[in-house]
Amino acid sequence: MREEPLEQQLADLAVDAPADLIDRIVARWVTVESPIGELFVAYTDHGIAYVRRHGAEAAEEFRRRFQRPLVRAPRPPAGLVSALRRGRSSTLTFDLRGLSDFQVAVLRATRTIPRGEVRPYAWIAQKINRPRAVRAVGTALATNPVPVLIPCHRVVRSDGSPGEYIFGAEVKHRLLHDEGTNLEELHTLARRGIFYVASDTTGIVCHPTCRHARRITPPHRKGFRTFAEAAAAGYRPCQHCQPAPTVATPAPGLSRDEER
């Protein structure tokens, strides 16, 4: 073998960067149609990172928050369009780096609420084992980086009124209406002091918008103000909508400053 100069051999050690290295550096963005108009969606190699209504400020705000270059993608990432159409995001992954553990927990719990159903803020707080942090849950959802896809609009006030929303309460109401959620009925029940609905044939108690609660025929519907009352009357919690307060055992390693 002919010997090349050592300097040249060393220069030949240079290799081309892998083609997908760029995906770990830049974020891509697309616009997609959604039930509430055109959305700006930015994503990284970790998943969807940012969703806002399409407009110049969306990209600006993304750069400010994430400090990554932003490159337009030729087409939406796999699963995004169908997730928006079906109101289900179980096939999507999200890039929630940079959020607090608390906010990630809130968003994860929110993600489990199915289309057509809603849960109160307090339910999220229960589910993440922070039953007293109801207000903090509201704050965490108010700054949800990926609304619509992680359905923070499905978290409402216990009285059946929609509560606040990133895109305004009006839009929240419309989104829920499009998903077939009957907020008016929830509101009417709440005014009568009913926050849990049970079936006296199955002996199961649900949140009012749970799919299993909605199919209880009127003669067998029983309403309760609290879960404790329903439990005292012999009803057991629905496994789908999980109305029972979790036993509030503080998880190890969770301190108050985690909310930072």
Binding site: A14, V15, D16, A17, P18, L21, I22, I25, P69, V71
Partner: peptide, 13 residues
């Protein structure tokens, strides 16, 4: 992006 295109291989290598 231009910077990246010009220097990605040097940096990676």
């Amino acid at each position: 992006i231009e910077l990246y295109d010009q220097h990605r291989s040097a940096v990676f290598s």
